[in-house]
Amino acid sequence: MISKNLTAASSKPIILGILKQGSSYGYLIIKKIKEMSGGEIEWSDGMLYPVLQRMVKEGTIRSKWIVDDAGNTRPRKYYEITELGKKELLEEKKQWMKVHSVLGLLWDIEPSV
């Protein structure tokens, strides 16, 4: 299980990473994180929303409500990554890779860059 602190620190790059692949809404984002981490990254679902709002405020993502005309699905708030968000993601990536390579050297595993 990933520790709480690490989860919190990684939430932003993970969300940006998911949105980079296409816009999405809260429930789907959580679902994807859970799938990808094999349930190792444990979020209480509600915690996602304050993070999303914070990111909207920072300008790295933006949101809009989409209501299906036919009324087949419920209204959903979709999030998409902004240009600033993309830049931020690159920066995050660099930093995480740096940490990764340092840890790799320390623990004698090949850096997988």
Binding site: S44, D45, G46, M47, Y49, P50, V51, Q53, R54, K57
Partner: peptide
Amino acid sequence: SFGSAESIAIDQHKS
């Protein structure tokens, strides 16, 4: 799995 309203409110307040 969603978590308690109170803890989310605290996070929300910070953000």
